Simulated assay, not measured.
Amino acid sequence: MDKKHFLNSINCEDKNLISNIFNKIQIAEKTNGIIFTNDFLPPAIWHQILAISENYDVKSFANGIFKDSDRRMLSFSTYDAPTEYPIDLLEIKNKSKFAKVDHKDYLGAIMSLGIKREKLGDLIIQDSICYAPVCSDISDFIINNLNKIKNCPCVVTEYDYISQALPERKFEEKVVITTSFRLDGLVSAVCNISRNSSVELISSGKILVNYFHCLKKDKVIESNDTLTIRGYGKFKIAEIIGNTQKGRLKVVIKQYI
């Protein structure tokens, strides 16, 4: 297995991250054991790792706990997929009956403990409860130290996702009209703002495409790509369902809620 070829085959600016993944693959190969990454990776990374590993003796697997998880932990094995991952699912309950907290509030509260985003998987919010997959080496720390979300008291416990039903992510689906699949056009349509305003958002670094900052207004977006737009939310581009009489595209988007 050639390290240089591996690094050059993965489209990612963080070569230290890819180098660490390569080292873990090598350890799995030498020990015939199961090796895990110690963080959750965005789809743009783990999809590429799964694809390139098909050429190697070591198999790669990805798990984010939830169905269709975006952020996932990778494992490497010369045998089958592991049945368990070093992931705990935390249940964070908002104890306030009067104040509502949302995704960014839960995420911000956890990260305010000094925890990096990469140590957390996708967060799902249901009925004033946040379900958060976390690396097992930090779960006790969060349970013992997280006691407030924004200004609301909370209680954190571990959720047994093996024997209990998993919550499912919910989306708000809508149709937008755009002239093209260029990033500036889609941002304009999704946010209902002018093209100039969308270009300003892009140039100021407030847009992530598949969890990576993108400053190219003419980048072509594809179906199933994820757009994170600061101040507006996170969206998955679903499909084109038709054209208007003026030839514009009718696109279904799903907003994470």
Rank of each mutant, 00 (worst) to 15 (best):
Ile129Asn: 01
Ile87Phe: 10
Ser60Tyr: 05
Ile124Lys: 11
Glu54Met: 09
Pro133Asn: 10
Leu90Pro: 04
Asp105His: 11
Lys116Gln: 04
Ile45Ser: 02
Asn63Val: 09
Ile34Pro: 05
Asn23Ile: 08
Ser75Cys: 05
Lys97Asn: 09
Gly64Arg: 11
Gly33Cys: 07
Tyr131Thr: 09
Pro43Met: 06
Ala28Glu: 02
Asp80Cys: 13
Ile35Cys: 10
Ser53Thr: 14
Leu107Val: 04
Asp140Met: 14
Lys59Asp: 02
Ala81Met: 13
Leu74Arg: 09
Gly114His: 04
Asp140Trp: 15
Glu84Ile: 01
Leu113Glu: 03
Glu118Asn: 14
Phe76Arg: 01
Lys59Leu: 03
Ser53Pro: 08
Asn23Met: 00
Ser96Lys: 13
Gln26Gly: 09
Leu50His: 13
Trp46Asp: 04
Ser77Thr: 02
Asp70Tyr: 12
Thr31Asp: 03
Asn23Asp: 10
Asn23Ser: 06
Ile143Ser: 10
Ile143Met: 13
Lys24Glu: 00
Leu50Trp: 12
Ile115Glu: 00
Asp88Trp: 06
Lys119Asp: 02
Ala51Asp: 14
Ser53Tyr: 01
Gln26Arg: 09
Gln26Met: 07
Asp127Asn: 13
Gln26Ser: 02
Ala81His: 12
Ala51His: 13
Ser96Trp: 12
Thr78Glu: 12
Ala99Glu: 08
Ile49Gly: 07
Phe61Gly: 08
Asp57Trp: 00
Asp102Trp: 11
Val58Gly: 00
Glu84Phe: 13
Asp122Glu: 15
Ser60Pro: 06
Tyr79Ser: 12
Asp137Val: 03
Thr37Ile: 14
Ser112His: 11
Asp102Arg: 12
Ser136Glu: 15
Ala62Asp: 07
Tyr85Gln: 00
Glu84Cys: 06
Leu50Thr: 13
Glu118Val: 08
Ile115Phe: 00
Leu89Glu: 03
Ile124Val: 14
Phe98Ile: 08
Asp70Lys: 15
Arg117Gly: 00
Ile35Asn: 07
Asn32Asp: 03
Asp80Ser: 15
Asp140Ala: 12
Tyr131Val: 13
Ile129Thr: 14
Gly33Ile: 01
Glu54Arg: 12
Lys104Gln: 14
Gln26Leu: 07
Thr31Gln: 05
Tyr85Leu: 04
